[in-house]
Design a protein around this nucleic acid. Structure first.
Ligand SMILES: [Zn+2]
Ligand SMILES: [Zn+2]
Ligand SMILES: [Zn+2]
Ligand SMILES: [Zn+2]
Lengths: 159, 159
DNA sequence: TCGCCAAATGATACATTGTATCAGTTGAAC
DNA sequence: GTTCAACTGATACAATGTATCATTTGGCGA
């Protein structure tokens, strides 16, 4: 609960949206009305949303949105690498650094809902080596760490 | 799909069941009829099962089993540390080495469904350090690596 | 510009996964 | 045996995710 990181202002939101659109196109995905709408909502929210939370935000501006439509849009955006799914909370979030395709780590604050995405070399190396050691050729790595972030742990005296 | 690791024979199954029961009791959990039945099914199956797959196996021997009952049993067994939930496949599996409570890594073969559970020091260290670096005090670590296991990759000529 | 075709959508229905509630039962402790 | 918390049974429902198919859209070549 509690407010997560505040959403970006409109100017940078617009720029971020354009950047994401360019990425989608570059990766061979049409960026349609629905998909753009999903991106916009995720960007505006600034935190992870469940598919049905997304749907609730989309319906006011497009009454024809459906679960299937939302899931299809999310599927496509995940393909394009600009959205990730949080397995442990069944929700979806914008990629934090979508420039290069990747599978990183997600740190989730269970108090404020903040999600931090990283690409930690040591974790990458360790999981890769683990797969190798056990004879697995890995194709996906889910690393989701939940806990309490610094801001939530230290009850900073608002000044 | 394809058969995963074959379930253990009845003798060692019985022993394993008794060992698990002892662990549950040691951790302050009553081991009731339903919970024992869930354990038995997971042990017999030798792979991860969804809650409803479990339910389907329980009903023939106890027609009063319900989803709520299965989830309650699973909840308790997870508390006791003898069952894990696979977030990425929404299923449940017996802990591979339940002697000490832990949160390890799960390697999942997407061909045969086999799940290997490890407690890799390097992965533990790397994720711990990552949390620390980002100011998170972690309380749970989901590390699920999916890929293809050795047996499935090398189509060994059965002899 | 026009027609074509693959991709995407809309609409509907359904499948799977997980919880809430509350009355009744059980079982360990005294 | 009584008691009380834990557990169960039963029911209903909430949340999450898919299948199907007719229709629309949009890029592309004639
Ligand atoms: Zn990312
Ligand atoms: Zn926080
Ligand atoms: Zn385990
Ligand atoms: Zn395999």
């Amino acid at each position: 609960m509690g407010k997560p990181r505040k959403p970006q202002d409109c100017g940078s939101q617009q720029r971020a949206l354009e950047r994401l659109e360019a990425l989608c196109r570059a990766r061979g995905q049409r960026l349609t009305r629905q998909r753009r709408a999903v991106l916009r909502q995720l960007l505006a929210e600034g935190r992870a949303l469940s598919a049905y939370e997304l749907l609730a935000r989309l319906r006011p501006e497009d009454g024809r949105s459906t679960p299937a439509g939302v899931y299809r849009a999310l599927e496509c955006l995940m393909q394009a690498g600009v959205v990730h799914r949080l397995e442990s909370t069944r929700s979806f979030i914008l990629c934090g650094h979508p420039e290069a395709p990747h599978g990183g780590q997600l740190l989730i604050c269970r108090t404020c809902g903040q999600v931090v995405e990283t690409e930690d070399e040591r974790v990458e190396a360790a999981t890769g080596r683990l797969g190798q050691r056990l004879g697995f050729s890995l194709d996906q790595r889910f690393v989701e760490l939940t806990g309490v972030c610094e801001r939530c742990r230290v009850p900073q005296t608002a000044h």
